[in-house]
Design a protein around this nucleic acid. Sequence first.
DNA 1: CTGATGATGTTCT
DNA 2: GAACATCATCAGA
Length: 203
Amino acid sequence: MRLNRDFYTRNTILVARELLGKILVYNDGETTYKGKIVETEAYIGKKDDGSHFHMGLTDRTRIIDEPGGHIYIYTIYGIYLMFNIVAEEKGVHGAVLIRAIEPVEGIQKMYINRYKRPYGNPTRREIINLTNGPGKLVMAYGMTKKLYGADLVTDQRIWVEDAKELALDEIVRSKRINIDYAEMGKDYLLRYYIKDNPFVSKK
DNA sequence: CTGATGATGTTCT
DNA sequence: GAACATCATCAGA
């Protein structure tokens, strides 16, 4: 079952935590990619100087004003794309960065997308390296900026599939990664990941 | 395995 | 003109 609007239009931190264990599905017209979300980070409005929108929205971040379930995808360091899901009701600003995924379907194509060579006899390290980071999982799925603003509740190509809720002791909460520039927000415990999952980007 | 470094170009000031 | 929610590669152990 595809997650509906009610799932996304809630508190950003809750959405970030509950996305763990869910399945991100994307069909590019040729290949279906599926993967289990194993690591997320919440970015919240005003009080979070680690978020792109704590000073208000810009042309890049305008989609975050829309209701939860829309896709906020952007370029970082000139090269990589970051995949985020908008949370909260329309007019309230919050987003969840998907930081890591465990491949479930379309693994051979993910391998080709990541390494630009035919699939064959992958090592364990190569498999983990497919999707154990926010830029990596976007490359593995072959996503582009065209997905900016797509709606996970209605879009035909991309959505999130529901899954059994995780037990609380399977979830770890920690500080977010690489936001030391944020004086207020750098110590907020807004990162969630599945305990002991090998695809989590960092301990 | 770890840590350091450079690549790269869009966005915002 | 500076900053940047990252990654691949390389050196060293």
